[in-house]
Amino acid sequence: MAESNSGSNSQIGTVRVKRGLADMLRGGVIMDVVNPAEAKIAEDAGAVAVMALERVPADIRRDGGVARMSDPSMIEAIQETVTIPVMAKARIGHFAEAQVLESLGVDYVDESEVLTPADEAHHIDKWAFTVPFVCGATNLGEALRRISEGACLIRSKGEAGTGNIVEAVRHLRSILGDIRKLTQADAAELFDWAKRLQAPLGLVQEVAETGTLPVPMFCAGGIATPADASLVMQLGAQSVFVGSGIFKSEDPAPRAKAIVEATTHYRDPAMVAKVSRGLGDAMPGLEIGELDTKLSERGW
């Protein structure tokens, strides 16, 4: 671990410092933005962080081609515009993109299936970085593999760019359901669980003991309305990432604010009803069965 400038026993990039920022974002909304103007709208709406990327997932899906890390000048312009944390995406396995993002001083790197994977066998060795990483997962085994590689925040993947919550719900239920089952397993069964999940035994035992992932878990992929946010928070997500759902809707600013309010007051249906009124059209949604590419199948 490197030393910071604050004294002889001071350390940067520790697990506690990296996971700690994710802890501070709990209960909030992280919004995808593609330019400083959108970043400002997100901050004004009460976002706890923004995710800087070149195109929101709905556009990546529409345009096709290879989706890569964003232009550093765009990320810097967003960093100059807002005071909240700025995250950015690197391709799965593309550690050089992650190094560039770290050098820009982004606050979290998302090793993301929304971009085109750069390595078909290896995710980034995230322990090698000072900047913390968030990674997607569709099930508990995938989440624990990412944590074993050094991820400090897990987001359930959902199906980005669809405005359809069904995959997010599937992934959340899979991860949290298996955690509940693990807590009921006896010591011998945990060896079998580790084998089936293809996850390190130590992490499986830890989850069985604590009943929770060792890092926070947020939800992504398909959230388009305040009620969607309330749904995934009630299912057990600790925060929500909203990608295309805000800036592909008819009127982004009030929808952004409404999703923030619904995430905060997710247990209060009257409040969710109140903020859901008069928001205009949500983003047009896509039926999962009709997709050519399922982004959630990228990564392993």
Partner: peptide, 15 residues
Amino acid sequence: RRNAFGRQIASFETD
């Protein structure tokens, strides 16, 4: 002053 110690990569722990 907000973020007086810098961005996340400068976040630290110390006794």
